[in-house]
Design a protein around this nucleic acid. Structure first.
Lengths: 169, 169
DNA sequence: AGGGATATGTTATATTATAACATTACACAA
DNA sequence: TTGTGTAATGTTATAATATAACATATCCCT
């Protein structure tokens, strides 16, 4: 039988999976109100917390927001890439990198327990629609000519010179 | 001549440098009240923001808190290690790791602009005071026998089985 | 001096997260 | 079966983090 808590987790996970964007806990809460009219913040945070402890969701620290895990229930930490243009999140498994990080900090005697690796930049799809940068190096948000939505549900779109991309809020 | 904003930045930096711990913006604000009795949050956030853009301070994303940069004005991102026992933060420069991360995400066409790498675990000093773990792997917080303060200003200390270490708040 | 840009001060509020406690459901012994 | 302790869920309130919005002052340039 499925308990209320399990149902909540399933509903939260379904909401997160609808997009490849990170959603704030309160955005998730809003969307949950359809199925759970009188839901309150602690219920959402409890569900997110359970999902995270099972590796089915991740908090994107640099966005204060949450995404569904894109791998098949991995336990190890992963690298999250965050597109500054469209907000798309991708998850990259790379044990060697985690080990490299552990190795670096081990030089001062630090023993690693949990890694957080996040990279901001421009995703492949947005790169394809942007002019290449002058002085070499990666393309930049300010160079975007004609921004356009990401893979799944469009949430970006207008984004000319804006300091803050549309998908943030 | 030194402007009010520069003075504020200097004061904030001095406060951050007094510890090797991360301080929340509001903790910084409290300490600033000595020198600036009527300071308000935006002033602190502005100072932190300026310091960060100059590479003189960093936000520890996983702690929602700020530390002084420990290197000589590096521009590149670094690896931050966070001791779960005493809260000590260490900064590790490791360009190769940043490149390894960029390389991993580049496999899907992502171009990196900014890296965030944070590692939680146990620092050398705390490791020295802890029993080694049974099944191999790093030592864990729960295994701590007789916790004791970190390098600079002691903020940790009691920490037997506590779920949340004392230095967090 | 005038006037625009930038920096600073001030008030209010938005956003994110958790504490604290009430209530319900559940496992299991008596 | 009924009590009774534990864990899960619901509910209310509030804590902690961060920024918007606007007023005022300062500086630079003419």
């Amino acid at each position: 039988m499925t308990t209320p808590g399990e149902q909540m987790q399933a509903d939260v996970l379904a909401i997160l999976r609808r997009r490849n964007l990170a959603l704030s806990a309160y955005k998730v809460l809003e969307e949950l109100r359809d199925a759970h009219p009188k839901i309150a913040p602690p219920a959402v945070y409890r569900a997110l917390s359970s999902l995270m402890s099972k590796g089915q969701a991740h908090r994107v620290e640099t966005l204060k927001a949450y995404v569904a895990c894109q791998c098949k229930e991995h336990a190890r930490a992963s690298i999250l890439s965050i597109c500054e243009n469209c907000g798309a999140i991708e998850e990259h498994l790379a044990g060697e990198v985690l080990e490299a990080v552990s190795h670096v900090v081990a030089e001062t005697g630090f023993s690693s327990q949990h890694h957080v690796i996040e990279v901001h930049g421009i995703c492949a799809a947005c790169n394809a629609r942007m002019p290449a940068p002058e002085g070499g190096g990666g393309r930049r948000l300010s160079a975007i000519a004609d921004p356009m939505p990401p893979k799944l549900e469009a949430v970006c779109c207008p984004l000319p010179t804006a300091r803050r991309a549309a998908w943030r809020h």
